[in-house]
Design a protein around this nucleic acid. Sequence first.
DNA 1: ATGACTGCAAAGACTTTGCATCTTT
DNA 2: AAAGATGCAAAGTCTTTGCAGTCAT
Lengths: 133, 133
Amino acid sequence: MQNKLNFSAKREAIYKTIAESKEHPAAEWIYERLKHDIPDLSLGTVYRNIAVFKEMGIIKSVGVYNGLERYDCDVQPHSHFICKKCFSISDVPKGRNFIDKSMYDFVEKECGASVTGHSVDFYGICISCREKK
Amino acid sequence: MQNKLNFSAKREAIYKTIAESKEHPAAEWIYERLKHDIPDLSLGTVYRNIAVFKEMGIIKSVGVYNGLERYDCDVQPHSHFICKKCFSISDVPKGRNFIDKSMYDFVEKECGASVTGHSVDFYGICISCREKK
DNA sequence: ATGACTGCAAAGACTTTGCATCTTT
DNA sequence: AAAGATGCAAAGTCTTTGCAGTCAT
């Protein structure tokens, strides 16, 4: 059993790539982005580190779109807008609370479940796809 | 190009299985459920019909959980509760509007996108998994 | 007959994993 | 040195697809 994680250069680079990207990247995207600077990076390492980050709770899955799992380093509750055409994902600016605690209570009572989180996603056509039309 | 869809016995059975199930089934689940009654059913046919139903707009994807795409024949907006442990999906009873039109306006203005839909999901541990503990 | 649907199996696409090797502590 | 991280390639899973045969109109 291990408890002490090393923070290798590659691990750091992978996390940094996710953190600095606003695109809610998929694994392959991260890999493509990094392999120029780190030619001996392997895709398996990207996947393994993503699993580590999830486990640590420093990234979250945004969901699977077009067959690709997308990640977000902002683990605070916030909404996303997903383009049905190009599958770009963008954050909806905060400043509007869609879901409050009373809704958790409602779901807990109605479903008998314990609710620990939620997600609100909006779908449509993004500004870039609209302009292309 | 074709426009006239046949409504074959298998197609009908597949749709009926989705419609009568409350489990937001995945393709494999539908297949397993039906192959007793329809021994010569093939999984490819299930997938192909799911694609047809989606295209027709009579079912919707609920999302991909644990690697499996889940489907819903209730295409009206409603929320889901997803168990993080067993990945069961249940409807949150209506009677509470989480998202209204002003929120679409908010997202459209903030993102410059055209918003055509949304989803609200709650996560946690379902009643059945809680009782097992 | 013609167009639509299906079984079957192969191919695709994304992700996970085993093992030997290399790094970090 | 010991524990952890990685490359590589193979394996795993879910889904799609080509093709020939079957069914519906």
